[in-house]
Amino acid sequence: MAERKAIFITGGGSGIGRAIAQRFAAEGWFVGLGDISDSGMAETAAMLGEGGSFSVNFDVRDRAAWDDALEAFSQAAGGRIDVLANNAGIPIGGSLSENSVDEITRCLDINLKGVLFGAQAVLPHLKKTAPGSCLLNTASAAGIYGSAGGSVYCATKFGVRGITESLDGEWASFGIKVRSLMPSFIDTPLLDMVPNAGTNEHIRVRVKQAGLEITPVEEVAEAAWRAVHEDKLHWPVGKTAKRIAFAARWMPGRVRKEARDRGAIQLLGE
């Protein structure tokens, strides 16, 4: 088995996935990029240098495609996968009454089913490199406390949190670590998307109007590196995420009041 460790990252063509790829490549890891954007993966691969990565175009909603993608990457990596970064995801916002059936279904399928399918598919590979191999799921601060205007997105990220906790117990006997990243508002292209089809106002605009900080994506990548190597289950990233985690644990009444009084993004800013 090759000595060079290997990480496979979904959503590796941009944003958090790209930053994680750069962080692990800098430590000498072989990086697998999974995405539906060939151009995005090509840009990331160019940043990692020749021979530093392997790319595969696939949809995380396709269970069979997961097996093919991971097997191809394992062969390229010399027969090993040490970490799967289950990172692919999409945003959705607005009141539940504004969200279309297609928007809800797409978000659930990508953000939740995609994580489950990835975990299921990667288990045989992580068993081979255990102990010390890791499933790293990208959740969100939205998985710490639900916010008005984000019911569908929060549901998926609470789900990712639950999956992480369940598999942490389920896979402990295999020597496989399971971790989650819980970032707040991160400076990635996702902030330049609209929360739903009923608005043309970008998420970034709403965040700035609320006076919230936008955390550099490199902080998420650093948290990813530490999560793989340290014994901590959930990793809030950014001041907002850490504030919510603290308040939800120690001041749940206050968090609920602010959620009801201020709604949506305002809750996250105080």
Rank of each mutant, 00 (worst) to 15 (best):
P124H: 06
W171C: 06
F246A: 14
R161A: 13
I244V: 15
F246K: 13
M47F: 02
S166T: 15
E258L: 14
Q120R: 07
F246W: 14
M251V: 11
W171M: 12
I16E: 11
S37I: 07
K177D: 04
N57H: 03
D35N: 05
I214H: 02
G238Y: 08
S74T: 10
A25F: 02
I16Y: 05
V217M: 06
S140K: 13
S173M: 05
R23F: 03
S74I: 00
G159D: 08
I203G: 00
T188D: 02
V160S: 06
E103Q: 14
A155P: 08
E43V: 01
G17L: 09
T164S: 15
Y145V: 05
S74P: 05
G269M: 11
D192E: 13
S37R: 09
R262Q: 12
E170D: 15
G162M: 10
G132T: 07
D109N: 13
N200A: 06
F24I: 10
N196Q: 00
E213S: 13
V60H: 08
C107D: 09
A247S: 09
R63Y: 01
S55T: 12
I163G: 00
A197Q: 14
A247K: 06
L84D: 07
R61F: 03
A197I: 11
G149I: 11
I16H: 09
T10C: 09
E71D: 05
G269D: 10
G132N: 02
R18M: 12
R18Q: 14
E27P: 01
R80V: 11
V152L: 12
G34M: 09
H125R: 05
T138H: 03
G89W: 04
T199F: 01
R256D: 15
Y153A: 01
E270R: 00
L136G: 01
G269T: 10
E165V: 11
W29S: 02
A85D: 12
H202A: 12
L126C: 09
A65T: 04
N137H: 07
V205G: 00
V194M: 01
E3Q: 11
V60N: 03
V60C: 12
S55K: 05
G51W: 06
N87G: 02
R226Q: 15
G118V: 14
A241P: 11
S39M: 02
V160P: 09
G15K: 06
E165A: 11
G28S: 04
I16P: 06
P124R: 03
F8Y: 15
D187H: 06
V207F: 00
W29D: 10
C134F: 03
P216I: 08
G253Y: 09
P189T: 02
G132W: 04
A42R: 13
R243D: 12
V217L: 01
Y153E: 02
V101D: 13
K208Q: 13
G162C: 07
G79T: 06
E50L: 07
E230N: 04
D261S: 13
R254C: 06
F117K: 04
T199D: 04
A77G: 01
A264R: 13
A221W: 08
P252H: 03
F174T: 03
F158M: 04
A69G: 06
